[in-house]
Design a protein around this nucleic acid. Structure first.
Lengths: 233, 233, 233, 233
DNA sequence: GATGAATGAGCGTTCATTCAT
DNA sequence: AATGAATGAACGCTCATTCAT
């Protein structure tokens, strides 16, 4: 949201403030982040933050909003025109593009962490809740569309798939971004491919693992530690 | 860690304190948890907490330690004697057993939530980080053993697999733990099966997806939004 | 209100805190009073105030409550059994007694200032509003009873009489208390008599002033300054 | 006081600023008034206020000064030529005229409220105190002149009379000013008459109340609540 | 001349931690 | 052994005031 005057700030200072906030929030979490620390990071006075933002929540909200504008897939991926053939390549391309953006702008990476972290926990309201819900909503639409197309497995609750897919993607993204810094462009393609592989592994319909179905035959002998081999896969 | 005198406390009070702490930390997060709330929950004076623990971190650490003793797989799963046949069933049984234990002891469920969130919680650095590392170490051994046995895919870096598998499992666990409270035993089996399915999907060698390999052909046209269909999966 | 532990505080410290608060609030007003100043005045840490009171409002409320218990006339003056003969002497005695109490306890004088100041302004909610209303309510009952008995004038709105009587009494009280400090017991009686005289003058039915009634004949020539003698008294 | 350049400002903007300040100070009190709110009310920049005034106190002081010029009685009432016959009518006319002026200019009404509250406002020390003193000085001259003429009672210390008369008048004025806004011209005369009645009641020599003199016979039995009827009025 | 931008100082409040008993 | 009492440090937020333009 941010007070209107924030738009009149020089791009440099505006970016500095957003970046400082994104990094502080990513490092310490919403509650743990100290406004004074954000102010110091960006080299302005603590009170000046309040000249541009209504309050802490407003600042965080603005950061996420800014990131959302750059990362959201609405408008870039058209769910309706997806087919079973294009589903995965579309995912791949979108993920790759966002990865590149985060790699170019460190604050975007930080904001992405906040966003993914919040979205992975479906509870938790407050400032983050709103964006978490948006992030989750898109993922859910994606997953459901994939299920319609037969590209995404239907044997697990969509809700669970969404949660796990968000978490797995974030983990993979963070891992890859950390490795990206020390590698060249060639490797980057490889790494991006890895992330995609994982994403597909989580969501794709499972192959026939062979052996009996997992759930029905499952039994537990309470109190006893597991004895490997007591039941077959 | 806990000061030595904590062991001299009656089992009842000891458990009460640990349980109260586990639940408070699980509900509010490490930073958000108030020591005074923990003291009140367990019916002892706030200063008494400091009689038994060095500080907040020590209390949290002790809670997680206690939970770790009950949940860790070292000693219950013998990596060396695992075979390709028993690998997945062993995972499944262990996961299931832990789920059952959490379901029987509410504080363990709470502690498990803390552990699962630890990796994502940026604040726990000190306390939570230590346990996250322990957990990761085990996961890494597991994954590597799986790769040796041919049960776990080798086309991705083990490090990445570990990271993602932890994240996916944690997400799935949290999701299931939250659903566990309101469901009966029958459903519980189902849910446990779900978690296992995801775990296996993440780690198993991928089927032949058909289509060209993902990585080599991958190209990004920066600045342009993805055009679905421009490349097939 | 005050948290229960406040009652367990030694009388000395309890009194010190109440006195410090009463004086700070009286000197600076509710908003202007700084909690840190109150803490310093009473020689305790700022955070300790929060050990005994929920917040600033609670502290102020407690001060006024304590004062109210000592100053209120309910139970000391029975409105129902008053007669035209006893009305004024009852007022006189009650006022005199409160004057004496305020003179003995400086904090009570300060609290009395807060109370009277708040009551004089019939608007203004918040913490003071509640007590202002109580103070005003009693004064109103008093005035109305006096009107029933024929002791109080009926030609002016009771509401106005209440407002003015409160203000006049407070002014007289403050004036007298300031003079009391340097005078002996003999003068004190005199001064107390003065206050009562004023109180009676404000409320008593007016004598026949001679001359035409004030209101109807009143005319203003706008723009011109008053010309003494243009209208007779 | 206001910096000299304030006089060079267009009458419109000058008046707008004064009016905005008067209303803000009247509504929120000196401390509660926010400079930014005054600036916004008058449509000028906050920093511009500091271009015309040294500080907050200076602004308030200027507002009160402006009001004082319009409301003060020096020059309108000639104390020396007053007689016993014209004393009260002069008071009445002056009070009435001021009331009319306040009714015509909303900002003057607001400023008048500030002035009337000044005596009771503990914070205004600096700014408001000065005007309270000026007002008191005039009141004192008035009262003393009234005593000389036999119009004002002499059985009470002039100092006390001044204090009480100011307080009573202020209370009555505030009461009436608050009622003025919602009433028509007819009622206005009535209300003005009320204020005058009170003023006269406070200051006029008291009638013979009947019964023994108040002061000499007055006794207090400490510790015992008043027993109505123990002494007659 | 006029003001948008920036901030230091201070407030109410919270909480982990210490200490005397 | 156990804890009530007390507090320093820090946080979110406000606002009168300054300064560069």
């Amino acid at each position: 949201m941010a007070l209107p005057r924030f738009q009149k700030l020089s791009a440099e200072r505006r970016h500095g403030l957003i970046a400082a906030a994104a990094e502080e929030f990513a490092e310490k979490g919403y509650d743990g982040a100290a406004l004074v620390a954000i102010a110091e990071r960006s080299g302005i006075g603590k009170a000046s933050v309040y000249y541009y933002f209504a309050d802490k929540a407003d600042l965080c909200s603005t950061v996420l909003d800014e990131a959302w504008k750059l990362l959201r897939l609405e408008g870039r991926v058209n769910l309706k025109t997806l087919t079973a053939e294009t589903f995965w390549s579309s995912v791949q391309a979108a993920a790759r593009e966002n990865l590149t953006r985060c790699n170019q702008e460190p604050w975007l990476l930080a904001a992405s962490k906040i966003l993914n972290r919040a979205a992975a926990d479906p509870n938790g309201g407050g400032v983050l809740g709103e964006f978490a819900a948006k992030r989750r909503a898109w993922e859910e639409a994606y997953v459901r569309r994939g299920q319609e197309l037969g590209a995404v497995r239907k044997d697990l609750p969509a809700e669970l798939l969404v949660t796990v897919s968000l978490a797995a993607r974030q983990a993979a993204n963070l891992w890859i971004l950390e490795h990206l810094e020390k590698n060249g462009e060639r490797t980057q393609s490889h790494l991006a491919g890895h992330v995609f592989e994982i994403y597909r592994a989580v969501l794709s319909p499972p192959p026939d693992w062979g052996g009996p179905p997992v759930v029905p035959a499952f039994t537990v002998v309470p109190g006893s530690a597991d004895r490997p081999g007591s039941r077959s896969a």
